[in-house]
């Protein structure tokens, strides 16, 4: 029972991390119509900036905003210099240009920080693990990640449902041309939105830094999974990104945790383990294929 609880928490935690990445991507994708392959690079930039500042100052409280800021600035610069010129273009042009950006950012990071992965410490106040409800022992840091992720989700919901900016975003997602025709400075809105998306990616990178390996190429590892989340949830939909992220996080975690045991009932140990590893790797993609065949617009489409 406690094992199941722990695995469920793990699923939620993976889910909220994916949500932070997917939220930015789905906004950029759904509202500006840009396929941004370099979204993973922003995640990497957040993690690296955080690691660098933490190493220099030794302060997590300084490093945390530094990571967000770096990702945000990189995002705004990326929008201003490159992505802005791609709005009117074919998706294919966007793919090639943002692929070029990935190569650039990865190599630039290698030149600046070297090839060795960086070290990031967990801040003291988040160290260790706690008992939850007397049944599950769970690392404090992961609980903090869940909390930050949920808080961000609520914050985004409020931003989009309650504020003027949110209204414009919703309007933009439904009818881009109309918003422009109404005299809204759509360029500024887009730059701002891109910056927010970049900061969310940076936030995911900052939080992942202490538990994963901060290294070149870390962005591409999560990029495809993020796209999967966006498409499962429905493009342009924050709610969809949240549902999709949790679904992906749960499916992935549960398959990894329980499939070997199930298969071992049916066949010899090592074969079962190897097969289970293969099948659980496919799990997320099977989920996406099924969702797309049954509900092509995703689980919670933005409009219509």
């Amino acid at each position: 029972m406690s094992l199941l609880m722990e695995q469920a928490l793990n699923g939620v935690q993976l889910g909220v991390t994916l949500f932070l990445l997917a939220a930015g991507l789905t906004l950029i994708f759904g509202i500006m119509g840009v396929i941004n392959l370099a979204h993973g690079s922003l995640y990497m930039i957040g993690a690296y900036a955080m690691a660098a500042v933490a190493a220099k100052t030794g302060s997590f409280l300084l490093a945390f905003p530094a990571g967000l800021l770096a990702a945000g600035i990189a995002g705004v610069a990326m929008e201003y210099l490159v992505v802005r010129r791609l709005y009117a273009r074919d998706h294919l042009d966007q793919v090639l240009a943002t692929f070029g950006l990935i190569l650039f950012f990865n190599q630039l990071t290698t030149i600046l920080f070297g090839r060795q992965p960086l070290f990031v410490e967990i801040p003291d106040f988040l160290e260790g693990s706690v008992m939850i409800g007397g049944i599950v022992r769970y690392p404090v840091y992961r609980l903090a990640m869940i909390a930050v992720g949920l808080a961000t989700a609520i914050g985004l919901y409020v931003l989009i449902a309650r504020t003027r900016l949110g209204m414009l975003i919703r309007a933009g997602a439904t009818n881009r041309e109309m918003v422009r025709a109404l005299g809204v400075d759509i360029r500024l809105l887009y730059t701002l939105l891109f910056g927010v998306g970049a900061m969310l990616a940076g936030l995911a990178g900052v939080m992942a830094g202490p538990i994963l390996s901060v290294q070149v190429g870390m962005g591409e590892q999560v990029l495809i999974l993020t796209f999967v989340v966006v498409v499962i949830g429905g493009i342009g939909s924050i709610r969809g990104a949240f549902i999709g992220a949790l679904a992906v996080g749960m499916v992935d975690t549960m398959l990894r945790a329980y499939l070997p045991g199930v298969l071992r009932q049916l066949m010899a140990g090592p074969d079962a383990d190897a097969l289970a590893a293969g099948l659980s790797a496919m799990g997320v993609y099977m989920l996406m294929a099924i969702v797309l065949l049954v509900k092509p617009q995703g689980l919670a489409p933005a409009h219509g």
Binding site: V82, R85, L86, R89, D93, L96, A97, F99, G100, L101, I102, L103, F104, F105, Q107
Partner: peptide, 9 residues
């Protein structure tokens, strides 16, 4: 990387 970007832009 930048070569590809410039090519598209």
């Amino acid at each position: 990387g930048p070569l590809l970007v410039l090519m598209i832009l």
